[in-house]
Design a protein around this nucleic acid. Structure first.
Lengths: 215, 215
DNA sequence: GTTTAATTAAACGGAACCGTTCAATAATGC
DNA sequence: GCATTATTGAACGGTTCCGTTTAATTAAAC
């Protein structure tokens, strides 16, 4: 994903490009950007964190904005990789849905993800494209994944749902509940958040199944 | 809410303080802060927008941070005032809930609110207290309001719900759906968002009633 | 008119940062 | 050795901004 050759013909002459440095820069950029925001992050601190000179950063990425976009893309790639709760090996549907919900919550509950979402949302005001990148890499992917799970349950006669995408949206919405907002506003109790989340998930799944279970 | 006298004994001597200026400053601060973020906003542009000298801003609010807090409080006050969909005079419960959902969605769908939420979430990282202020003034208030509406329906025998706060959370979550995220990431189609929202609300309410309607 | 306090414009010191330039050095192929 | 490219450190010009100071002006009470 990180194209290092800069679209140039591979040079056989001179000092070779150290590919690891681009990765180090992007990782450092993620840390800085998604912990302090775009404007608050300086290229120099990113370079320092990456163990690289500022000039190298500019040589590889051109501008601060381009580096930010690269950081977003990198983070989205990580999301894509980490977002495979699809292979739920649960025996019954209820357990599968609860599993999905608990995993989803745990995924969203990580500090990195919270901060990433916060700062990304602000930067979409300057560059809407990165908002689309994020949604495609994460939420929409997860939405389709849950919808697919429901599709299978419909096919096997366990559920009776017309619009599985809509139903998946309902379930995901209930699973998030108010915690989504409380989390983003930094008001989720670290001690009780996991217990509360589990309760919220089971309640949501049970309510959901009560409605959509096939007669 | 805006205390202008600075805890001093009212002066009868000298030039009197122009109370309108504090309001103008806070309003200008809201515009700047919640459109460009804290760090990107300069005291000088706020002062200019308020038609006031920079020194006056510092005389009244002391620091940039204090001004930001004042702006958040002002915005939260506005929220409190605007957040009265309580008096739903709908005849049947379904209409009342749909009304509530549509109003809530319209409230959240305003550009000012979207930007306010975005920038506030980022600033909670530096100052968690403002996150609490926001949640109390807005979301939690609305949550209790919806829960109260459900309570009445339970009392009058229309609904059968043990945990009305939990149920209200479920309904609100479904009403938000994915749109909440899409909106924050700047990917909600301006042309279809209202229609989609209405459909999402009615579907959520119907699903909700199907589950919790008293036998 | 005099006194008192609020307000202003202008300027300042200090800091931070972006993006560039330049000379020096490092790592490769020949 | 030489040629070539990557990389570095240091410095620079330009900009922006914070928070303060100063001298001048304004609006009220007396």
């Amino acid at each position: 994903m990180l194209e290092d050759s800069n679209n140039k013909v591979k040079n056989t002459l001179g000092r070779p490009v150290d590919a690891g440095k681009s990765v180090a820069i992007v990782k450092a950029a993620c840390t800085e950007f998604f912990n302090h925001g775009f404007a608050q992050s300086s290229i120099e601190s990113i370079a320092a964190r990456a163990g690289v000179s500022k000039v190298t950063v500019y040589n590889r990425f051109g501008t601060k904005e381009a580096l930010f976009v690269a950081a977003v893309e990198y983070e989205c790639d990580s999301m894509r990789d980490a977002l495979d709760f699809t292979d739920v090996a649960a025996i019954n549907l209820r357990d599968a849905l609860i599993d999905f919900g608990v995993n989803m919550n745990a995924f969203l509950d990580r500090d990195e993800m919270i901060r990433f979402e916060r700062h990304l949302a602000v930067e979409t005001e300057h560059n809407p494209e990165i908002g689309r990148l994020f949604l495609e890499a994460g939420p929409r992917r997860m939405h389709r994944s849950l919808s697919g799970l429901l599709d299978k349950a419909v096919e096997s006669g366990k559920l009776d749902i017309d619009d599985t995408m809509g139903a998946a949206e309902q379930l995901a919405g209930m699973i998030k509940g108010m915690a989504d907002l409380e989390r983003r506003m930094g008001q989720l109790n670290p001690k009780t958040r996991h217990v509360e989340a589990h309760k919220r998930v089971t309640n949501a799944v049970d309510m959901f199944l009560q409605c959509y279970a096939a007669n």
